[in-house]
Design a protein around this nucleic acid. Structure first.
Lengths: 247, 247
DNA sequence: TGTACATCAGTGAACGCGCGTTCACTGATGTAC
DNA sequence: TGTACATCAGTGAACGCGCGTTCACTGATGTAC
């Protein structure tokens, strides 16, 4: 049966080539589904996502979508994970442009807000109200969310090591429970940074988040007028308090 | 027609008494509708509010609700306005307990977060994703939202006047556009405070908001462990930077 | 006080709509030898 | 290379559900004199 092995090999090649083509087509269609889902959410809000509406826009019938996603919830999960990763990608690529840690940290912060403003729906999807009836598989989302946080933590660590970051003595007054948790967290993968760094990262993150969230829903503009200026001013203040020079 | 006037008077009394009773009943029912609406949103998310579901829970038919609210959107508006006012009430009452301005400011900040945690749905309703298909009448909501902000502004003004609040010189670097807007805003009713104060209020507000929003959707606990401690620590830091003593 | 009338809360049926999901199917494409 | 077979995308009908809103109505309560 020498020839059999031979032909088996050829067939396997052909299978691969063909199924790869099919696979590529599948991925394109999946991407289109997700893109249209995002369009709908942008127009009507995250909670308005509907398989039938997506199918209508794709000139397909609704059951056809079940070839690509086993249910509405799995589609939402895919969108959420993609959003978390896109945000982290944006931050990582911003961090990769320049050299100085403080400058890169600034770039990352600006990239975070920019991504949020350019993808308001994805931002709402990951950080806003949950969609009725949907429950995120937290083991997946927590890990995806951590990626973005780690970018900031690493830059802070770098700045600390370089002596650029000088944490104020007030961090010695950090609550004991929090310090304990952070000390334990710092041993986990991706988080090899002292509690002070993790605390600063959390502060920076929550301050950014507050402004962006208020900005996204138009609560901030009536109060400060120049939201962009306010954001930069607030972040400058944070940098100054850490002894970092503002780019 | 002397007697007519007499009876007219009596009748008007009776009308008042009866219609007042009916009016009271109407208000009770309206309150019940709103309470059940909140229950449903708490269970399923703000976007899941449904008149039919409310009616079912009240053992009524759905059309009956139209005696109390002309449409679903008006019910949502009522809920939003009530939430804004309840939050402002909580803050005002916290501000009224003690005497020292810094202490009262601290109390107000704690009351803000406490209200948010105790009324997560109302908080999402006013500060979270909009409900699909609903558009808030901004002329009403902006004014309702301002009440809470003004409480903080007034306390800061008081602390400034008393010499307790010492704004750092970094406020001189405030963006020009923002400074201009705040200067103009300060002339409006309720806002008689210099730009520095309005800027500090906005900073405090957005910092609180970021933490609470992340906390509400369970994003913060995995990062800092002790959310309560983190919030107090972050607010202490703000107080320290303003020269205010921490209660 | 009694009586005709007006007001009001609430009903039940209906309209027209949209939803997620299932199922048996068709027809095209790829696989096996 | 030709042919039988398997895989896969997509259809169309259906299930059972829920939604906001309208309409003509009933029956209780309040009003007017």
């Amino acid at each position: 049966m020498e020839w059999r092995k031979q032909t088996d090999f050829v067939y396997r090649w052909e299978i691969m080539a063909s199924s790869a083509r099919r696979e590529r087509y599948r991925e394109t269609t999946k991407d289109e589904i997700k893109a249209i889902a995002r369009q709908h959410m942008a127009a009507e809000g995250t909670a308005a996502l509907s398989l039938r509406a997506i199918a209508r826009d794709m000139e397909m019938t609704a059951p056809a979508l079940y070839r690509y996603f086993p249910s509405r919830d799995e589609l939402i999960t895919a969108l959420i994970l993609e959003a978390f990763n896109a945000l982290a990608d944006a931050m990582e690529s911003a961090a990769a442009q320049r050299t100085d840690a403080a400058v890169r940290l600034w770039d990352v912060i600006m990239a975070y807000r920019q991504w949020a403003l350019e993808h308001p729906i994805d931002f709402q999807l990951i950080y806003g109200n949950p969609i009725p009836g949907y429950h995120a598989p937290s083991e997946l989302t927590v890990r995806a969310a951590a990626r973005a946080f780690i970018v900031v933590v690493n830059l802070l660590s770098e700045a600390l090591a370089a002596g650029a970051l000088k944490p104020s003595p007030e961090y010695e007054t950090m609550p004991a429970a929090m310090h304990g948790y952070l000390a334990q967290l710092s041993q986990q993968d991706g988080y090899d940074a002292p509690p002070v760094i993790l605390c600063i990262a959390a502060q920076g993150w929550s301050r950014m988040h507050g402004i962006i969230m208020l900005e996204l829903f138009e609560h901030l503009a009536p109060v400060v007028g120049d939201v962009d200026g306010f954001f930069r001013f607030e972040m400058s203040s944070l940098f100054r308090s850490m002894g970092l020079t503002i780019p």
